[in-house]
Amino acid sequence: MAQREALGTSPEEIHPTYPYKVVLLGSTSVGKSSLAYRYVKNDFKESLPTVGCSFFTQTLNMEVATVKLEIWDTAGQEKYHSVCHLYYRGAHAALLVYDIANKETLNKAKLWMRDLEKEFLPNEIVIALVGNKVDLAAEREVATEEGEEFARTRGLLFMETSAKSNHQVNDIFLAIARELLQREQEKARAPSLHGRSTVTLGESRVRTGCC
């Protein structure tokens, strides 16, 4: 894997730790809390509606670095929209979650995408589009290709998951962690080309040996 090369070139960077803020966005009851719960506790239970935001942490010991994910699980109801920027501000990654059995939730995810584009520069944030509830295959309203296509045109990671049956939940978070590390390397490799990177790092409490 390419990302292993650049990191670890100097002794103090042999195994750095990167904390990343990951925010879960999407309509109400698409399964944001359940995805976080499945990922962190490997369990599934009916979640209470999230009011405001709830928080999870997960540490990943990757070969080149330790990644600490700070997961911000936000309230889905649209009425909370006006406070949501409080939550995604300074995020390193976002999961745009929709429910494959509810077409409208994909449209909402696209609206979230627009919000993120306003808040962040391209490449400033890793975004994944996540079609959850594949266990409800019989009620599917959104074809896999449809999500895939939208993700492809916008350069997003894409996966279909099920928090209930534990399908690809780890995988999507892992993919995000990999992507974040890879971007970290690119920044380390060419700091001068990313004039903004120092600013981003400072804001986001990332400890790195570079710059």
């Binding site: 209470l48 009011v51 405001g52 935001c53 709830s54 406070v83 409080l86």
Partner: peptide, 17 residues
């Protein structure tokens, strides 16, 4: 750590949650 992080839930549900 801004107060919205914890106050939103507490105030909206009057601590019942």
């Amino acid at each position: 750590l801004t107060p919205d992080i914890y106050l939103i839930d507490w105030i909206f549900t009057l601590y019942s949650k």
